[in-house]
Amino acid sequence: MHAIADNALTGTWPCPVPAERLGQIDGARTATSPLPPPPLPAGAIRAQRKVHASGRFMINGQFIKLGPRHAGKIVTVVIEDTHYRILHGEDELAVRPRKNLGPITRLYVKGMGTQKDRQGSPDDKPSRKS
Score class of each variant (00 low, 15 high):
residue 83 H to R: 13
residue 6 D to N: 13
residue 40 L to N: 04
residue 4 I to M: 06
residue 23 G to F: 04
residue 120 G to Q: 13
residue 52 H to V: 02
residue 28 A to H: 05
residue 20 E to N: 11
residue 113 G to F: 08
residue 110 K to R: 13
residue 52 H to K: 14
residue 7 N to S: 08
residue 130 S to N: 13
residue 112 M to Y: 13
residue 130 S to E: 13
residue 111 G to F: 03
residue 19 A to F: 06
residue 125 K to H: 02
residue 81 D to T: 15
residue 30 T to P: 10
residue 71 A to L: 03
residue 54 S to F: 03
residue 114 T to H: 06
residue 100 N to L: 13
residue 93 L to W: 00
residue 114 T to G: 05
residue 65 K to T: 15
residue 36 P to N: 09
residue 4 I to G: 02
residue 32 T to E: 06
residue 46 R to C: 08
residue 26 D to P: 14
residue 52 H to S: 11
residue 99 K to S: 14
residue 31 A to T: 07
residue 8 A to D: 06
residue 121 S to F: 05
residue 78 V to S: 12
residue 55 G to C: 06
residue 79 I to R: 07
residue 121 S to R: 12
residue 73 K to W: 00
residue 123 D to L: 05
residue 99 K to L: 15
residue 36 P to F: 07
residue 9 L to N: 04
residue 70 H to P: 00
residue 17 V to Q: 05
residue 78 V to L: 15
residue 106 R to Y: 06
residue 130 S to A: 15
residue 62 Q to G: 00
residue 63 F to H: 10
residue 49 R to W: 05
residue 97 P to E: 10
residue 41 P to M: 04
residue 6 D to P: 03
residue 80 E to M: 12
residue 119 Q to G: 09
residue 88 H to Q: 10
residue 121 S to T: 15
residue 12 T to G: 03
residue 59 I to N: 02
residue 66 L to T: 03
residue 112 M to H: 15
residue 81 D to V: 09
residue 97 P to V: 09
residue 118 R to V: 15
residue 45 I to T: 11
residue 68 P to N: 06
residue 47 A to T: 07
residue 125 K to G: 05
residue 115 Q to M: 12
residue 6 D to H: 08
residue 117 D to H: 11
residue 78 V to E: 15
residue 125 K to S: 10
residue 37 P to S: 14
residue 41 P to K: 07
residue 25 I to T: 07
residue 96 R to E: 12
residue 29 R to H: 12
residue 87 L to T: 04
residue 11 G to P: 05
residue 115 Q to I: 11
residue 67 G to P: 00
residue 75 V to Y: 06
residue 106 R to L: 11
